[in-house]
């Protein structure tokens, strides 16, 4: 390539944005994590790892971390395989019906979070909600969907999943639009089945996107559930829907324990660092064995 000179102005805006609005604040947060600060009175001097220790003195934080991992795992198929299948189905039969389905499937993204939460609260109302009325028809006793520690996390993940599917469906649609239809027609003429087309033409085309979306799902799933938790359950009942992100929010913005909230934030980043290192070690050893 002859164009290598002059890449700086192209990357500068990104690097500036990340440095000023993410990395800078993150370093500041790391500093706060070893201080006591309630936002308004001057921060204390260094308190060492007190804030970190305080997170582990009670089971809440560890439990929230476990539940975050659990919901991230549960959301993975909703970020990848499910929107992929729906996108391929819509792609296979373009037309009026596809346009309608595509619009309907996008709806969860459009509705304001507070309206989604209200709708679900009414539908899932254990005393008179539509969901339990339907169950009643089949003779199933009422379920306290969001109020029962046994079901609350599941329901919350399902509500979040709808949004994730809708989001990633849009991204897959864009990816699929890059496939050359002439190639598909040629394959059809040669008698290729639908499955073969999916396997040999669509598959390779969406592979990279799927890897990226899977990675993003792992990194962002916890943040996705945050909105649902804050508008629907506030971490309850009995803490079963709590996540580390909601914990950081509660510590920072309800209890104004900025030090502990910062420490929790640092721990989340550290956890990802450990995960990333483990991943690259696995990859390297695999490559070495080949």
């Amino acid at each position: 390539m002859t164009q290598k000179a002059g890449w700086r102005p192209y990357l500068a805006p990104l690097i500036l944005a990340l440095a000023v609005w993410v990395y800078g604040p993150a370093v500041f947060t790391a500093v706060l994590s070893v201080m006591k600060w309630n936002l308004t009175t001057p921060p204390s001097g260094l308190v060492g790892l007190d804030n970190y220790a305080s997170l582990f003195r009670h089971p809440e934080f560890a439990r929230a971390a476990g539940q975050t991992i659990l919901s991230a795992l549960a959301l993975l198929p909703f970020a990848t395989i499910i929107p992929l299948v729906l996108a391929v189905m819509l792609w296979q039969r373009p037309g009026r019906a596809s346009v309608v389905y595509r619009a309907l499937l996008f709806v969860p993204v459009v509705v304001a979070p507070v309206a989604v939460a209200t709708a679900w609260k009414f539908l899932l109302n254990p005393l008179q909600g539509l969901m339990n009325r339907i169950l009643e028809v089949f003779g199933i006793p009422p379920v306290n969907w969001l109020g029962d520690p046994g079901t609350a996390l599941l329901v919350l993940v399902a509500i979040t999943a709808a949004k994730v599917v809708a989001f990633n469906l849009v991204l897959y649609t864009a990816t699929l639009s890059g496939i050359d239809r002439a190639l598909v027609s040629a394959a059809e003429l040669e008698g290729a089945t639908r499955w073969e087309i999916s396997r040999f033409i669509v598959g390779p085309h969406v592979a990279r996107t799927t890897v990226v979306l899977a990675l993003l799902s792992v990194v962002l799933a916890g943040q996705w559930t945050f909105t649902s938790v804050s508008v629907l359950t506030q971490g309850g009942p009995d803490g079963v829907t709590d996540s580390v992100y909601y914990r950081i929010y509660a510590l920072g913005f309800q209890f104004f324990d900025t030090g502990a909230a910062s420490a929790a934030g640092v721990l989340v980043l550290l956890a990802f660092a450990v995960l990333a290192t483990a991943w690259s070690v696995v990859r390297r050893s695999r490559r070495a064995s080949h």
Binding site: A19, V20, Y23, P25, V27, F28
Partner: peptide, 19 residues
């Protein structure tokens, strides 16, 4: 990237120290 990061951090740090 480094100097920028430093400026961001120092700027932010000074906020806390300012009464």
């Amino acid at each position: 990237m480094k100097p920028l990061k430093l400026v961001g951090t120092l700027g932010a740090l000074s906020l806390v120290l300012t009464a």
